[in-house]
């Protein structure tokens, strides 16, 4: 299969959407790839120069502008840049955008997409390494998308636009140059639908975004040791597809979740909680949650690596469950 980098697929998908739909504008000059990948983003910005609003360093202001522009008939993709900067715009993202459609009885649509490069990007230290996605799952009315695979990017982008819902799209900073390890599924990706990327029978490993890439690499390692892992990509965090996870664990009886968020009220804890009610009794062993421990992210690379949910830790957790 053709190997497309995740970031290239992202930029192509945005370009396709802008060619297809003149309502689409980009607000924020941060692009989609950060400084490291600006050469990939440049052609997009050159082609659509007049539809890109290069903003001042005013996340609160320009995220609010995205909401207003959406109300006025555009489809703005608001590029926040580093995920930690979303906190500067928290009042607009969490307390304006998600309330408007509901509180207007469905009459005022807010089709806006906020986009950020999140996660432990290696030596970003505590103020540039935020994973705001779990916090955003606490925001009713906000759709949270966090794909991991190049093949899913275009269809999910279109689906988000068509949904007319305010959406926060999370890309991990380290995802840009990753390529798909497994071919795309038969069904096109849909909002609120997870995908079994690799079928297996011994253990279910759940991830999203960069953690999913780590899960798949772990599955390859596990295969060498005779362990057949089923790997699930959540793709959208809100709405969350608990059914696919439940079905898989019903088969394997074992669960590992990899999630860079802090342990409390995280994506991993939400997945694990499925087996306290809807999937009660399906686990044969206690679930293993691999999170970043609850400390601010340290700068020093060995400390950071020590705390990350790495491929090695996923392999180890799966082996302990299957043993």
């Amino acid at each position: 299969m053709e190997q497309t980098m995740f970031g290239e697929a992202k930029i192509k998908a945005v370009g396709d959407l802008m060619r297809d739909d003149e309502r689409v504008v980009i607000i924020g000059g941060a692009g989609f790839g950060g400084l490291l990948h600006s050469k990939y983003v440049k052609p997009l910005f050159d082609e659509f120069d007049s539809r890109i609003l290069r903003t001042p360093i005013a996340e609160l202001g320009f995220c609010g502008m995205g909401i207003g522009a959406a109300i006025a008939g555009l489809y703005p993709i608001v590029t926040i840049g580093t995920g930690s900067f979303a906190f500067e715009a928290w009042p607009q993202i969490c307390n304006e955008a998600p309330n408007i459609t509901y509180m207007s009885g469905g009459q005022v649509k807010v089709p806006v997409m906020f986009h950020a490069l999140v996660g432990i990007r290696i030596s970003g230290a505590a103020q540039h390494s935020a994973r705001p996605q779990a916090m955003l799952m606490q925001v009713a009315g906000l759709q949270v998308i966090a794909p991991s695979r190049a093949a899913d990017v275009g269809p999910l982008l279109k689906a988000a636009r068509d949904s007319e819902r305010p959406t926060f799209w999370v890309d991990h900073s380290l995802l840009f140059e990753e390529t798909d390890l497994y071919p795309p599924g038969k069904a096109p990706p849909a909002l609120g639908k997870a995908e079994v990327v690799r079928a297996g029978k011994d253990v279910t490993i759940v991830g999203y975004s960069i953690d999913l890439v780590r899960c798949l690499k772990a599955a390859v390692e596990l295969e060498k040791e005779g362990i057949d892992a089923e790997v699930i990509d959540l793709r959208t965090l809100t709405p969350l597809d608990w059914e696919t996870v439940c079905e898989s664990v019903g088969k394997t009886g074992r669960l590992v979740v990899a999630d860079e968020c802090y342990p409390s009220a995280s994506v991993a804890s939400e997945i694990a909680s499925i087996f306290a009610d809807k999937g009660f009794g399906l686990l044969k062993k206690p679930a293993k949650r691999l999170n970043f421990p609850a400390v601010p992210v340290p700068l020093s690379p060995p400390l950071e690596m020590h705390l990350l949910p790495t491929v090695g830790k996923i392999v180890q957790a799966a082996k302990e469950l299957v043993a």
């Binding site: 202001g61 609010g64 502008m65 207003g68 006025a72 008939g73 703005p76 607009q92």
Partner: peptide, 11 residues
């Protein structure tokens, strides 16, 4: 206020 600036931009 930022939202109102956004509708102005949309117009």
């Amino acid at each position: 206020l930022p939202i109102a600036v956004g509708t102005a931009y949309g117009l």
